[in-house]
Nucleic acid binder design. Structure first.
Lengths: 199, 199
DNA sequence: ATCAATATTGAATATGATTCATTTTTATTA
DNA sequence: TAATAAAAATGAATCATATTCAATATTGAT
């Protein structure tokens, strides 16, 4: 029946709204149920518990992020141009999705139980493109190989996630996107390293 | 009476143990009270509520971190040597304090209410040394000035906090300290920028 | 139209934070 | 030392919510 599919979606949609506004802790099942137009018990038909519902939220948005990154990178050549574009889109995505950003960056991303879910693995895949770009750059000889690719990924995701987290904690008051060029600049210098310059 | 001072300490100590093991959500006041050897109600004599107790934890450890950083930086000259030492101590501190690390990195650091407390401001001061080092480097002309110092700080703290967070989420299985040299290397290249090389 | 299967409901239960009237301890004074 | 007031501690009662489940309603098949 078509309604069954819709129900689950309704609940998730209501959950996004309530969890985004209140955070996991102070969001209540009653409010989510009410907003979804179902009884409290119905939620437990679709989700094991409050946490399970919470953890189901990022699936849809992760799909969006992944496909949009792929789309934006399409046709771009040159490893550093790809880095620039990724940095831009990462900041753009959270600038345009601050509510979801709060859930992802300030709650889910650092949740130990969430880190053990399949959704988390799925989420990690969404930044797979960074890994691919770094690997490509190392093969082409434009990205340093004297440092583990893991470290380079920590560098790229570290600065981006840190910036977005701090920005969200400050209630997204300033325009985070304005800084994308400076971020790309330092990252590219770090990734290139000294060797390619022959200094 | 001397016991009165000790009471508050007892409760905080018990809270560190219980919150570290279980996280904020599933730690219970009863367990903390029991471990501290007081009744449930006593906790509310010293702390407004569960969250207030949670937020009181980082004060002591922050003091330790700050004074140790200052001590380790003492006598070191050269901006990049200071960066290297800070990176090393940052990783060392969390390697030797993983329980506290979980509380700080995975819960407090991303908590919106905590970001509004005085303790949070105090905590931010603990990484003041990074700012000082960066400023010193810019004055000396060895650190790039074509990028905001804010961005440079995001870079340094971003990679470090990201590394520690991921490591804690993976149950601190590997030795995070092993990577300190590689981290310093990429950071220093990023901070130096291209210009000083004359390329 | 009937029936079995499935989905929904919301009152009852369970868990755990918080309150507060009572009791205990501490400090002060004679 | 005893009496008394002030401060601290207690834990049973209260309150707020997540979760359960027996009863009810809806759906799809024949």
């Amino acid at each position: 029946m078509y309604k069954k599919v819709a129900r689950r979606e309704d609940i998730i949609q209501a959950a996004i709204e309530v969890f985004s506004k209140k955070g996991f802790q102070s969001a209540s099942i009653s409010e989510i149920a009410q907003r979804a137009g179902v009884a409290n018990g119905t939620i437990y038909q679709y989700f094991k518990n409050k946490e399970d519902l919470f953890f189901s939220i990022p699936v849809e948005k992760t799909n969006e992020f992944r496909s949009q990154v792929a789309l934006h990178l399409e046709g771009i050549s040159g490893v550093f141009n790809k880095i620039r574009k990724f940095v831009w889109y990462f900041l753009y995505f959270f600038k345009t999705n601050p509510d979801y950003g709060r859930l992802l960056m300030l709650e889910l991303r650092v949740n130990r139980s969430f880190a053990k879910t399949e959704t988390y693995d799925f989420l990690k895949q969404s930044v797979r493109s960074v890994w691919d770009i770094l690997e490509e750059g190392q093969k082409e000889g434009v990205i340093r190989t004297d440092v583990d690719i893991y470290i380079l990924r920590h560098l790229v995701l570290g600065i981006l996630e840190h910036m977005v987290s701090r920005w969200l904690l400050k209630d997204a008051q300033y325009d985070i996107l304005e800084q994308h060029q400076q971020v790309s600049r330092v990252l590219i210098d770090a990734l290139r390293g000294e060797a390619p310059n022959g200094s």
